[in-house]
């Protein structure tokens, strides 16, 4: 039986889909059979972020309603071995999902894969309930903003009341420069409220925007601050102890001197 991890947040726009895509990619690159499931029925975009939009024929609702086999709805990523996507329908909505069918499908997936990553929709309504139903582990995405922390806290409370066995959070889009200036919540600030284990910190990184737009997860190639952070998070998911590096902001001059002195 594979591990089923739901990626959730409560608040929208904090990076659930980006984290799902990149974490899934990073796990697959570490040679684990991984499927990423878009549970945002009616507002699908995981396939866009993964760059697999044009290859989606069947979606998860087809599977749940028995219109096609599970195998034929899985889209294999050609760039990364072991990586699969199960897309959401765009034309239906969340009420069309039968929670029982969802649970059955997730169970089926967990028999075939080492990791089932579920990209949860925003909100705490039925869509959230459906996404969480088959998962044993949850990853709560939070950005260093009070509104995001507030919603993450609410979601953690809801998750603790369900059957989730293991729960941790990822702090996304942290800008050390803003923290140093006192304009952004720091990691200890967030930890003080959420009080659950932290799985990783992803620094604010402009490479994300580009990677999302061209549909190529950053984790595929190393060398970007966020992409490397996803790699570390994947290794922590596998149980490795990987320390969180400090994300120092480097001004242009600092980078120049670093380049001159050659310890890049």
């Amino acid at each position: 039986m594979g591990r089923v991890i739901v990626v959730t947040s409560g608040k929208g726009g904090v990076g659930k889909t980006t984290v799902s895509a990149n974490l899934g990619t990073a796990l697959a690159m570490l040679a684990h059979r991984t499927v990423i499931v878009d549970a945002d029925i009616g507002l699908r975009n995981l396939d866009l972020v993964m760059g697999l939009e044009n290859r989606v024929v069947f979606n998860s609702l087809h599977v749940m309603e028995g219109e096609c086999k599970l195998e034929s709805a899985l889209v294999k990523d050609k760039r990364v071995e072991n990586l699969y996507l199960l897309a959401a329908p765009q034309s239906r909505n969340k009420d069309d999902v039968d929670p029982e069918n969802m649970e059955k499908m997730v169970k089926q997936l967990s028999e075939k894969f080492d990791f089932v990553i579920i990209d949860c929709p925003a909100g705490i309504e039925q869509g959230f309930q459906n996404a969480v139903i088959g998962a044993k582990e949850a990853l709560v995405i939070v950005t260093p903003e009070v509104s995001s922390v507030r919603d993450a806290d609410r979601v953690i409370g809801l998750l603790q009341a369900t059957g989730i066995e293991s729960l941790s959070y990822v702090l996304n889009r942290l800008s050390q420069q803003l923290v140093d200036r006192g304009d952004m919540l720091s990691q200890p600030d967030v930890q003080e409220i959420l009080r659950v284990p932290i799985l990783g910190v992803i620094p604010e990184d402009h490479h994300i925007t580009a990677s999302t737009n061209v549909g190529k997860p950053l984790a595929i190639e190393g060398g970007t601050p966020a992409g490397d952070a996803f790699g570390r998070i994947a290794r922590r998911v596998l149980g490795e102890k990987v320390p969180v590096p400090e994300f120092r902001y480097e001004g242009k001059m600092a980078r120049f001197w670093k380049w001159i002195s050659g310890n890049n």
């Binding site: 922390v149 507030r150 806290d153 609410r154 409370g157 409220i193």
Partner: peptide, 22 residues
């Protein structure tokens, strides 16, 4: 946690933990 509301209209209330924002 955020969104939770505990009350005791018949006396005192003791929280063995934090009362988070919200």
């Amino acid at each position: 946690r955020s969104g939770e509301f505990k009350r005791n209209p018949r006396g005192n209330i003791l929280i063995l933990g934090d009362v988070n924002p919200g």
